[in-house]
Amino acid sequence: MNVFRLAGDMTHLSSILVLLLKIHTIKSCAGISLKTQELYALVFITRYLDIFDRFTSIYNFLMKLIFLGSSLSIVWYMRRHKAVHRSYDKDQDTFRYQFIVLPCLLLALVINHKLTFKEVMWTFSLYLEAVAILPQLVLLQRTRNIDNLTGQYVFLLGAYRALYLLNWVYRYFTEPGFVRWITWIAGLVQTLLYADFFYYYILSWKNNVKLELPA
């Protein structure tokens, strides 16, 4: 564990807490893409299949439970909770995510470390996580006024993976033989997808104006 990875995990956790805070307190998910939330739940389920048979540390175990629990409860809130579901804009959240899921699955079958079910699922979860934000970014472009919590949520989500990139650089130089091409490339693609959001987010923060993404 290094400071970049811990900061990354804490940033990731806080992004989820910001979203849960928004949904639970103001009972609204306006501007949030249910498609992206469902993709994240799938990412965690396929990533943590080994939660019970490969024990790394208490920290690892607890964080996996938190990520699984929070992502599933967010999907539940947006689908089942009357008030929250009413605030969900399904006419705008129209990204057909089969165009994301299937290619990631095929790619995971072709490019992986080992052709076993768990390893392919783990690789699939990496590819899926890299592009899972797309429905949310598309929805942000369609959402006229993006509220602060939604902007903070997406920003923290992008920042966590950027911190993981620093973690991989650190581990590459401190741990001989630490090479994770699949993880690195997926993580780089994921972070690059946030590039223009970061640009407009920081601009809106600097000029103290409402965040707006050009359509």
Partner: peptide
């Protein structure tokens, strides 16, 4: 093939 990867990261 590469050695068994320990998925030690989240």
């Amino acid at each position: 093939s590469t050695k068994e990867h320990s998925h030690d990261e989240l």
